[in-house]
Amino acid sequence: MFHPHEGQALYAPAVPAPGSMAPPATMFGNVPGYEGTLAGGGGGYLPPPMPLHPTRDPEPAPVPQDWNIPSLTEDVARERFIMYASGYCCYSNAPAKDGVITNMQAFNTYRYRLETFTESRSTDWTTKPYAGEPADFYTQTAPRPWEIPVTAPSLFQNHEENIKVPYTSSKQPCHTCSASGKMPCLECNGSGTKVCWVCNGSGSRGAESPCTHCNQRGRENCSKCNGKGNKECETCKGKKQLLTYINLKVEWKDNVEDYVVEQNSGLEVDNLSDVTGKTLFKNAQYMLYPVHGFPDPTVSQASDRLVREHQAKYSQNSRILQQQQTIELIPITKVTYKWKGGTHVYYIYGNEHQVKVPNYPATCCCSIM
C-alpha cells in the first residue's frame, strides 16, 4: 500500500511585478491597504491571508489492483505503422506493409503529475478616458485586495480578471495633453504640412513645368492629421480627463509538473508529453500529502520533492486552492522488423497508439510541379 504525507505551506513577502502606464502616484494619494501600489510599476503580487481551509488528515488513497496494460497485438502494431507511413508523401509504405516483425518488447513506464491550482492578486494605479463614471474616491473605505469577492473558474482552469477596486476612482485632467484633448502631430511636427514628395519642395517638376501635386506650393497637407497639425490624444481619447483608479488583477493558474520514470527503450521522454496512459492513482485535496510506498521508489521520491516544492513556492505570493496528483502507466512498445535484409525499429506508445520512427528506411524527395 502507499499513502500520502502532507507538507506545510510557507509565506513570504511579495515580489514586485510590472504594472500599467499611469501618471505619478502622488496625484492619487494613499489608500489604506494599498500603500505599496504604484503607478506604472504595480504593487506586486500580494501575499494572501492565512489559508481558507484548516489542515486536515489525508483521505485514504485507493490501492491499484491492476498494474498491467494489455499487450499490443502484432496486427495493431502493423496497422498503426501503415497509417503512419501513409501520412507522409515522401514515404513508401512498403516497409510498413512488407516488413516482417521479429520482436515486440514492452517498456511500460510511470508518469507522475502534480497540479497546483492557485489564485494570485496584484494591484496598480491605472487610468482610462473619463466617460462620466462616478468618482467615488474616499466616499467609503476601499476593501482590501483579498476582501474583494471574485468568482473562481472551474478547478485547474487558467483564467484572469481585472477589477476596478471600489472607492478608489477619481477624475483627473489628462497628464499627457494637459487636458487639451489634442497632441501635436509627430509626422509634421504640428505644422499641418510636409514637403511635397513629387517636387521635393521646389514647386516645379522641371524648368517650366509647375508641380500640380502641390499647386506649386512646395508643400502638401499632412495625411496623418489631415492638415490640422494635431491629433486626438491617445491617452484620454480627446476626453481631456481621465478616470484614475486602482486595478486589481486576479489570476488563476494551473501549475503542472511531470516526472516520468526513465526507461531503456530508446524512446525519448519528451515524446510522451502528448499522450495519455492508464490512470493507476489520482487524488485531489486542498493540500496534498506526497505518495509513499509506490512500487517504483522513484515515483514516491518525485512526489515528495514536487509536493514540497509546490507548497513552498506557490504559497508565497498566491493562494493554493486545490492540488491534484496522478500516476499513469504509459504503454511503450518497441517493434523490431526486417525489410530488404535490414533490421529496423519503431515505437508505439500511449493510449492513442502514437508512432515514432527514428529512421524510416524508404523515403524519397518530393517536388511540387
Rank of each mutant, 00 (worst) to 15 (best):
M104C: 01
Y138W: 07
W197Y: 07
G181Y: 14
S92E: 15
G132I: 04
V150E: 06
Y167E: 08
K164G: 01
H159G: 03
Q157N: 10
V100G: 01
A135R: 02
T118P: 11
S169P: 04
Y112Q: 07
Y91M: 12
D124S: 09
C177W: 14
V76N: 06
C90R: 08
P64C: 02
E187P: 04
G87Y: 00
L186N: 04
I163E: 10
C188M: 11
T126Y: 08
Y84M: 05
N189D: 08
D98Y: 10
R111Y: 02
G192L: 07
F107W: 10
S191D: 09
Y112R: 01
A179H: 09
C89S: 11
Y130V: 01
P145R: 01
M83P: 00
E160Q: 14
Y112E: 08
D98G: 00
K171N: 14
V63C: 01
K182T: 11
P166Q: 02
Y138E: 13
C196M: 10
S120D: 13
P95S: 07
N162L: 04
H159E: 08
T102M: 08
C196A: 10
A152Y: 01
S169Q: 12
S120L: 03
N189S: 12
L72V: 14
E79Q: 14
S178F: 09
V63K: 00
P70S: 11
G181L: 09
F156M: 06
A131S: 05
P173Q: 11
E133H: 00
P129E: 05
K171D: 03
W125E: 02
G99W: 01
P173A: 13
T116F: 09
T118Y: 01
E79I: 02
W146P: 09
S180N: 03
S180F: 07
P129K: 02
I69V: 15
